[in-house]
Design a protein around this nucleic acid. Structure first.
Length: 689
DNA sequence: ACAGCTGATTTTTTT
DNA sequence: AATCAGCTGT
């Protein structure tokens, strides 16, 4: 049993501790130096595939083994799953020393912020019973206010609600003034500056009035709480050691949180790779990484450059590719794995050909023993896999898609959850708006009256049944009142069971409300399946808001043992993952880099890093593909096609490291390429056809 | 006055 | 696929 038990390192000499932790031998010297680092803040600059996760996990294990109380360790990651995986690995390692990992605090900045605000928020004047607005709610609140404030104009089009929220979020996360954000990031909305300013002021007011926090607030309030409040020291002191993953993708607010959290103690480890910073649209600041040593006195910087993931030829290509970046921290990576296949650049005749080529190659690798889930198809934007998905479906090849519209953002799922949210918090205005407008003959005006009516009845949800409303709406309101009263009366009823009752009410309405009612009905089934993992309604709702499942198929039900599936993913969602075989599709200028992100040199450089992230996911085989021709169908005209150009980052030196092949004999028209090549922007916009 | 329908429009990426 | 503006029916 425990060799160390609760023993700490305080009285045990370092070398003895290390000597008794045989698992430290799993690490290379650089990783080991990072894992066993003692003293001040530590910045680990970890290139792609250099064992970043392993290093963090072992560091958690090391801290615990040397006496740090696990509940005083905070592990901040980009997704909840990343935190779970690291803690699990740490646990496995510690088990070898007869120790257990205990309860480490772990999760995303947002979920940890939420927990901290639940504990300390009241102390700092934050209402104890605040609820959280997820992205969809926040958007709906924006839309509501736009209407109330009558900000629209007859001739000009007002920015859509999601854009309003993007602008707002950018302002608060980057700490930039509205006018600067508009000019730099949203020039097409600049004419609405006055209206937006008013909108945001009211948005802020309304949130405070209703005691709700949006996702950004979870970070902002945490930052405030820990920089300037009576409990700042107390919160900071709670953690002896803080570890942060993917530091290159943190923003200024998150950096401020860390500074506050370390006001009383030095224990801090951050890991990141500036070459993989791909979230500047969310106000991530690569500067956070470059500035880290200046922000935290006594920082040690340790680089990890030995790559365990990819064969050398892949690294030869990716090293050259990223060498085009102008500002960089990291040096070239070298492979611990040795030689292998050169990356392939495959020019396809058109999109359909690209789909066929992907599938053909996937099946070839599969026949040679590479399971489908060890292969991934990556692309810049979620819609770029649409035709491939159809083709896979036709051929009966199972796949899972990551990124793009998330499960929770689909209208009918939001609807179903809104019922539970009203039951949970009858003052949740956004949820009421959603639920009530599902009823026949009920629109925005009736909803507004309903809100007043509810307030008069002490926000008792079943009081909705007595709202004076047009005849067509009567029955719906009564049945809704009954359902909500029921859900409210038995809050301890299992969330899955509550959702069953919601489905009985709401399911039959799908046909009237949406296309594809059957498919949507199946989604409700999935939702109920997720809910079955929860005992309490509130926990279920909060979890879903803060750590939403990122693949629709992730929750398709209990997985079968022998199931295998091909992975389709946006490049963003592929961050941190790796596969034996990777296919990067649509590597054509305008798609990768996206022509929506080619405004400034900084944006283009981020697209370069994005391309780098895509390529460095591959272990053994890398296929970069692009269709020479794109079909464009303009209404009223017969089908046309236009020519694409290879992604600009594949310069001649980069191409020299790859095996360049054309899948089909090049079309005769190719010579006219330069004449025909039309405005890429116009072409990309037509993708919605 | 209001809800609901139709047709045009839509900048990627997402914690 | 979802949003938005404008029109139409009640």
């Amino acid at each position: 049993m425990p060799l160390y038990g609760a023993v700490g390192a305080m009285w045990m000499p370092m070398n003895t501790v290390e000597g008794r932790l045989p698992w430290l031998d799993d690490l290379n010297p650089e990783q080991r130096a990072a894992v066993t680092h003692e003293g001040g803040p530590l910045l680990v600059v970890a290139g792609a595939g250099t064992g970043k996760t392993r290093t963090l996990a072992y560091r958690v294990a090391y801290l615990v083994a040397t006496g740090v109380d696990p509940s005083r360790i905070l592990l901040l990651t980009f997704t909840r799953r990343a935190a779970q995986e690291m803690v699990a690995r740490a646990a496995a390692v510690l088990a070898r020393s007869g120790l257990s990992v205990g309860t480490v605090w772990g999760g995303t900045f947002h979920s940890v912020g939420h927990r901290i605000l639940r504990i300390y928020g009241a102390v700092a004047g934050l209402s104890e019973d605040f609820t959280v607005l997820d992205r969809g709610d926040a958007e709906d609140l924006m839309a509501l206010l736009v209407q109330e404030l009558e900000l629209r104009d007859a001739d000009r089009r007002f920015p859509r609600k999601s854009t309003c929220l993007d602008i707002y979020s950018r302002c608060v996360n980057a700490g930039d003034a509205l006018e600067d954000v508009l000019v730099r990031q949203f020039p097409w909305c600049a004419e609405w500056e006055g209206e937006l300013r008013s909108l945001f002021r009211h948005y802020e007011e309304r949130k405070q009035g209703r005691r709700v926090l949006d996702l950004d607030d979870l970070l902002l309030y945490w930052a405030e709480l820990v920089t300037d409040s009576a409990v700042a020291d107390k919160i900071a002191d709670r953690f002896e050691h803080i570890l942060v993953d993917e530091y290159q993708d943190t923003n200024r607010v998150q950096a401020r949180i860390l500074r506050g959290m370390r006001r009383t103690r030095p224990g801090l480890t951050v890991v990141g790779d500036d070459a993989q910073s791909i979230y500047s649209f969310r106000a991530a600041e690569v500067r956070n990484m470059l500035d880290f040593p200046g922000e935290f006195a006594g920082t040690t910087v340790l680089p990890l450059e030995r790559n365990y993931r990819s064969v050398q030829p892949i690294l030869a290509t990716t090293n050259l590719l990223i060498a085009q970046a102008t500002q960089r921290y990291t040096k070239d990576l070298w492979s611990a794995r040795g030689d292998g296949a050169r990356p392939v650049l495959l020019t396809c005749a058109d999109e359909a050909d690209q789909d066929r080529q992907v599938i053909e190659r996937v099946l070839q690798h599969h026949a040679r023993g590479v399971p489908l889930h060890a292969q991934a198809v990556l692309f810049r934007a979620a819609h770029l896999s649409a035709t491939l998905e159809l083709e896979l479906g036709r051929r009966g090849i199972p796949f899972r898609k990551y990124g793009g519209l998330r499960f929770l953002e689909v209208a009918h799922v939001k609807d179903a959850l809104a019922f539970l949210r009203v039951a949970e918090n009858p003052m949740d205005e956004m949820a009421w708006f959603r639920v009530l407008q599902l009823l026949e003959r009920v629109g925005p005006v009736t909803v507004r009256r309903a809100m007043g009516h509810l307030a008069e009845h002490g926000h008792d949800p079943s009081a909705i049944a007595s709202l004076k409303a047009p005849g067509g709406a009567r029955e719906g309101l009564e049945r809704l009142g009954a359902l909500l009263g029921e859900l409210r009366a038995v809050p301890e009823l299992a969330p899955a069971e509550q959702l069953e009752r919601v489905r009985a009410f709401y399911g039959p309405m799908l046909g009237r409300l949406y296309e594809n009612p059957e498919a949507r009905g199946r989604d409700l089934e999935s939702l109920i399946w997720i809910a079955s993992g929860y005992g309490r309604r509130r926990e279920f709702l909060v979890d879903l808001q803060l750590d939403p499942p990122n693949s629709t198929s992730d929750l398709a039900g209990p997985p079968h043992k022998d199931e295998d599936w091909l992975v389709l993913s946006t490049i963003h969602s592929a961050k941190g993952c790796e596969w034996d075989v990777v296919y990067v599709i649509h590597a054509a200028d305008g798609f990768l880099p996206s022509d929506m992100a080619c405004g400034t040199p900084e944006e283009i450089e981020e697209e370069l890093r994005l391309t780098y992230v895509a390529l460095t996911r591959a272990r053994d085989h890398l296929h970069v593909m692009w269709p020479l021709r794109y079909h464009t169908r303009r209404a009223g005209f017969r089908a046309q096609h236009s020519y694409a150009q290879l992604c600009r980052f594949f310069t001649p030196p980069v191409l020299a490291t790859m095996e360049c092949v054309a899948s089909a004999p090049p079309p005769e028209e190719r010579e006219h390429l330069i004449d025909i090549d039309e405005d890429i922007t116009a072409r990309a916009r037509r993708r919605w056809d």
